[in-house]
Amino acid sequence: MSVVEIRGIKKHFGDVRAVDGVDLSVHKGELLVLLGPSGCGKTTLLRMIAGLEQPTGGDILIGDEVVTNLPPRARHIAMVFQSYALYPHMTVFDNIAFPLKARGIPKEERRAKVENAAGLLAIESLLHRKPRQLSGGQRQRVALARAMVRSPRVMLLDEPLSNLDAQQRASARDELQQFQRQMGITTIFVTHDQIEAMGLGDRIVVMHDGQMRQVGTPQEVYYDSADTFVATFLGSPGINLVHRADYILGFRPEHFLPKDVLAADEEKCVSFTYDVTRIEYLGADRLLYGNLVGIPSDVKTMSRLPTTVPVTVEAGQQYEFVIREQDLRFFDHTTGKRTAPREIGE
């Protein structure tokens, strides 16, 4: 059963097509991630679901009810803003109780619900503080508590982790996912950070220029990218794309390995002579930059070689590198869309 259904939704700001015809259905209890570079329309899409932005065309259904023209307050949803948007003049308790007050829930029940939510997020001791007395991580928890306290049909999160530093972010990601699983709240999460998306999402929607490029599990969008945009956007570094006569050949750096490493598997492989020009040691991995001999290209072809693999590679040398055929991806050279595998003519 889908909790949120989006049908042909569009949002144009003058000539700019921020969102240009998106169809999407969000399943009950899942954590769906909207992923894309800045300006791809993901936040606009989220704001339209919240009712903060009026779509130019199309419909939004929440729980089988068309809500396209309803104001935010009538949609029974919750949203966590990038800035957390905690009310600075209220205590943490009043912040969390605020959506309950709007629904006219009696005082005693309100107190019980707020305390329950605070307990789940381990912020009971902060209830009497004001938002300015909280750290970034604590503010995020308060914002989450305020979102879940009303038992919303959908919880919308707009880059809630981007204000945290790198260390806090990893633990916040873990807590957020546990919390979402535990509560079973259907959640839509907007981010431009692919690590967050891959780590958190049950499914990922990759967006670009107002359009949906692919929807799928993290594995699907990564290994079976629908087009060259998705393939290069995901992964760090992104996929290698080699332009041939009438198609584009794609392979991930971690699949492009020295012959000695892969030959033992006796699988069908494609081999290239690889001219290594530079090596970066990244601790766990070695990142190789180089060119495929005989195939001119503007971009360096990269290989990600785990340090644990006992192979010596030096810059300025040529090596025989191979890719298993199952790891090769083919894209149309004009549209960039994924195409069927084909024979590779040298």
Binding site: A50, G51, L52, P71, P72, R73, R75, I77, A78, M79, F81, Q82, S83, A85, Y87, P88, H89, F98, P99, A102, R103, R146, R150
Partner: peptide, 26 residues
């Protein structure tokens, strides 16, 4: 910040009430 008003509207208030409860006290 406009976020505060939008948060209040998502939290179940009309624009007018969001103004009275959030913008006025601030």
């Amino acid at each position: 910040p406009i976020d505060l008003e939008e948060a209040a509207m998502v939290d179940g208030y009309s624009r007018l009430m969001a103004f009275v409860k959030v913008v006025m006290p601030l």
